[in-house]
Design a protein around this nucleic acid. Structure first.
Length: 808
DNA sequence: AACAGTTCTTAGGTA
DNA sequence: AAGAACTGTT
């Protein structure tokens, strides 16, 4: 643990050169948060209150005051983007002298780093691979198949989700509580245990394991824990409201000694409950860490008063908050704008026009660049309408947080080849690409290979070789398979040759002595003229993978080839392939070029931490936002989380925030009448402008009604939209006009649904006639005459006597 | 084993 | 509506 020697000159120099530039321009609260260095600190930082500024200033202060060297600060974020930004800003405070903070990163990347050092303590080798969700799913499918469970009724996806949640709670298979025993057809824990065994055999772990293994190591080996408790003299955690139980335990163990832990967060922005985040962590902080200093950052530097008021009113509907009141010195500015549209397409059209207007600088506001505008949607499928429209009118846009670069099929395939080159025994990689490109090795052949490998207790490649020798695989397939096996062996040899230990330029991969030691053990250096980049190209070439896409005539093929080129290019910043594999598994996200002027389209979740002068929030309709699923799953808890999402959305806006909803939207390919979101009702009338879109055709919709009611009386309008009755009225208004437009397809009516009572005879398009056995809200339990008893959502059935009226 | 055509499922967010 | 999963045919 040689952290001390290298860093010393830095802080000395920084201290002498600049007294404390990072303290300048901090408000009193921020300053308090920065200067309370010792002991537990909770920084409750509302949206736009200069949280990152305070956090980075705190790091600078720790370094500058001589309390810690860069390597003695553990700073944890959730996203790589946040980690990168913090690095950049800390560097900015202290000048280039900062070599970087080796322990600033995401929970996952830091855990991976720790785990590589101590892998053997949990029965792994330090060269373990990190599974992506594809691998994980494939593995689970195999395990499910081995248990005689019907995979249709119990899909691997579901199990993956369950295991994920268990890991979020830091439960090993033995620790899963008894009340969970019924999970996955009573076999959940059993398969979970089998899965963990399998991972160990494969020398692999999934994302959750990165943390769990670390926790386990800390718990079982107090000496190791103590090493790190001593090393990390100060701990900082960003977005604390998003931590799950495993992360909480991880932190508590590491902070256990000195308790110099500073957690930053905002309970009002906790939006990841669905993936295991525990708001309770932040609500409980003062009990977990007695004597904690609690600092509230409430002065907002981002948004206008109207925007803050709207956000504040909405979030006030939640209970159990720690409570903050944002205030600002900013000028009044524009009110939040609210507008309803006929349908989703029109909403997209209108927003497109607005963006063009704002770009030109109408409305008395200064012109905005496209980069300054964003559309934040609840669900990613909403993005489509905007993409379609913007393509039509030629408006440049960028989708943020779509499928990540490394999640694309071609990248995963290429990565699987690289993984095979690095470790030929990587069975999951082998399975992925044995028959990609097509080598005439179908499922039957693959089963043979698996059987032989299992019987002999060897990896699949070796099993494949044995299968050929034993004459179990013949003909074309055998020849192709033989070539693949030879290729893998040769690539593997080359990989060893291209490894050259030296300083890595990329700061994600700072290699200290220990790391080099590990790497050197894994890769004996040998002479080879090839660079790892040439090797990568060679692998893609010789495997036939590039050729496969060259011969592919689908429109996506060129794009995929481009991606492969990009992948190879990305290798340039690494010294070797295996370092690259680590990076891509954990760190790489596709930050598309921010230099080009484009409108951003992203999900509300993806927008957290960002800000834009102009923000559009479309699709505020009940069922979509708040999402029905969220409310179904966790009831009022879910609704509160949705409300926080609304709060996050509104507070992204600096100057202009526009909320909209549509009366009709296509859901699962079917038109549905929509009701404005209940959050629309929660907006404060005094801070909202209701817009009437010019040229809204038809005139029967709710927008037209708003126009008519625009009759001089603002209060009346406000009152109108602010009452629950208003939205019913509007929904009702829009309906008659909806039918003719979609003459062939019936618009399923939101409010005029027949109310079903027990015993009623009903008809369903697919299941035929049946009798309602019980009613639970809009869910019916129907005993169908032909297809037996089923749970059905009421809107899918009609009274039996109306069966003829169905248009399908 | 590969392909084409068909049916079924899916449409919350993510490291 | 779109993609995945499945079926039957060559």
């Amino acid at each position: 643990m040689s952290d001390f020697n290298t860093d010393l000159p830095l802080s000395a120099r920084a201290m002498a050169a600049r007294p404390a530039p990072y303290l300048e321009g901090l408000n009193p609260a921020q300053r308090q948060a920065v200067e309370a260095l010792d002991g537990p600190v909770l920084m409750l930082a509302g949206a736009g209150t200069g949280k990152t500024k305070a956090l980075t200033a705190r790091i600078a202060h720790l370094l500058n005051s001589g309390r810690a060297f860069p390597s003695q600060i553990l700073a944890v974020t959730f996203t790589n983007k946040a980690a990168r930004e913090m690095k950049l800003r800390v560097g900015g405070y202290l000048g280039e002298a900062v070599e970087g903070m080796p322990w600033l990163g995401t929970f996952h990347s830091i855990s991976a780093k720790l785990l590589r050092r101590h892998a053997e303590l949990v029965g792994l080798k330090s060269s373990f691979t990190i599974l992506d969700s594809d691998d994980q799913l494939r593995l689970l499918k195999q395990l499910i198949a081995a248990t005689n469970i019907d995979e249709k009724r119990w899909p691997a996806r579901l199990l993956a989700g369950i295991i994920d949640q268990w890991k979020n709670h830091a439960w090993t298979p033995e620790q899963v509580p008894a009340r969970e025993a019924s999970a996955f057809n009573n076999r959940g824990t059993e398969i979970y245990a089998a899965y963990q065994d399998r991972l160990k055999t494969l020398n692999a772990c999934d994302f959750g394991d990165l943390l769990l293994h670390c926790i386990r190591i800390f718990q079982v080996h107090p000496d190791v824990l103590e090493t790190y408790q001593t090393r990390f003299r100060y701990i900082l955690v960003d977005e604390y409201q998003d931590t799950n139980i495993a992360q909480y335990l991880w932190l508590r163990l590491l902070a256990g000694g000195h308790k110099n832990i500073c957690c930053v967060g905002d309970d009002d922005q906790s939006i990841y409950g669905w993936r295991g985040a525990e708001v309770g962590n932040i609500l409980r902080f003062e009990r977990d860490f007695p004597g904690a200093t609690v600092v509230r950052l409430e002065q907002n530097y981002r948004s206008t008063p109207h925007i803050l008021a709207a956000a504040g009113q909405v979030i006030a509907g939640n209970e159990g908050r720690l409570g903050k009141t944002l205030w600002t010195e900013a000028e009044t500015g524009e009110k939040v704008r609210l507008i309803g549209h006929w349908d989703g397409e029109e909403e997209a059209r209108w927003i497109g026009e607005q963006i063009e207007d704002l770009q030109r600088g109408t409305r008395g506001l200064a012109p905005f660049a496209l980069n300054q505008m964003a559309i934040l949607v609840r669900a990613s499928h909403q993005m489509r309408a905007f993409e379609d429209r913007f393509l039509t009118i030629g408006l440049p846009y960028r989708v943020i947080g779509g499928p990540r670069f490394y999640e694309r099929m071609e990248i995963r395939d290429a990565m699987a080849y690289f993984r095979l080159a690095v470790s030929p025994g990587d069975d999951l990689a082998f399975e992925r690409v044995v028959n990609t490109p097509k080598r005439g090795l179908g499922s039957e052949t693959q089963k043979k290979i698996q059987r032989i490998a299992r019987v002999n207790g060897v990896p699949l490649v070796q099993g494949a070789a044995m299968a050929i020798e034993a004459g179990e695989i013949k003909g074309k397939g055998a020849a192709q398979l033989r070539r693949l096996i030879e290729n893998i062996a040769r690539w593997n040899h080359s990989v060893s040759g291209t490894f050259t230990p030296s300083t890595v330029s990329n700061d994600e991969l700072i290699i200290d002595d220990e790391d080099v030691g590990v790497a050197a053990r894994v890769f004996e250096s040998g002479a080879s003229a090839e660079s790892h980049i040439e090797l990568a190209e060679q692998i893609l070439e010789e495997s036939g993978y590039t050729e496969m896409w060259l011969n592919d005539k689908t429109p996506e093929a060129p794009g995929r080839l481009d991606n492969l080129k990009e992948l190879v290019k990305a290798l340039e910043s690494f010294e070797n392939i295996q370092g690259f594999l680590e990076h891509i598994a954990l760190v790489m996200d596709n930050d598309s070029d921010g230099s080009v002027d484009k409108v951003s389209i992203m999900t509300l979740h993806g927008s957290k931490g960002l800000e834009f002068p102009v923000v559009f929030l479309p699709g505020w309709e009940d069922g979509l936002f708040p999402s029905q699923r969220s409310m179904d799953e966790t009831g009022s808890k879910g609704l509160e989380e949705e409300r926080r999402l609304a709060y996050v959305g509104i507070t992204r806006a600096e100057q202009l925030c526009t909320i909209s909803f549509a009366a009709n939207r296509r859901v699962y390919g079917q038109w549905q009448a929509q009701m404005p979101s209940r959050f629309v009702d929660e907006l404060p009338a005094d801070h909202v402008d209701i817009l009437t879109p010019p040229g809204l055709y038809g005139g029967g919709g709710m927008a037209a009604t708003m126009a008519q009611s625009s009759v001089e009386d603002r209060a009346m309008r406000a009152d109108a939209y602010n009452s629950p009755g208003w939205r019913r009225f509007q929904a009702a208004q829009s309906r008659p006009a909806a039918q003719p437009r979609q003459a062939s397809k019936m618009v399923i009516d939101g409010t005029a649904l027949p109310v079903f009572e027990e015993g009623a005879r009903v008809f369903h398009t697919k299941f035929g006639y049946g009798r309602v056995a019980s009613v639970d809200g809009d869910k019916l339990f129907v005993e169908f005459e032909k297809s037996g008893p089923r749970h059905i959502v009421a809107r899918f059935v009609v009274p039996a006597d109306q069966a003829d009226d169905l248009p399908f």
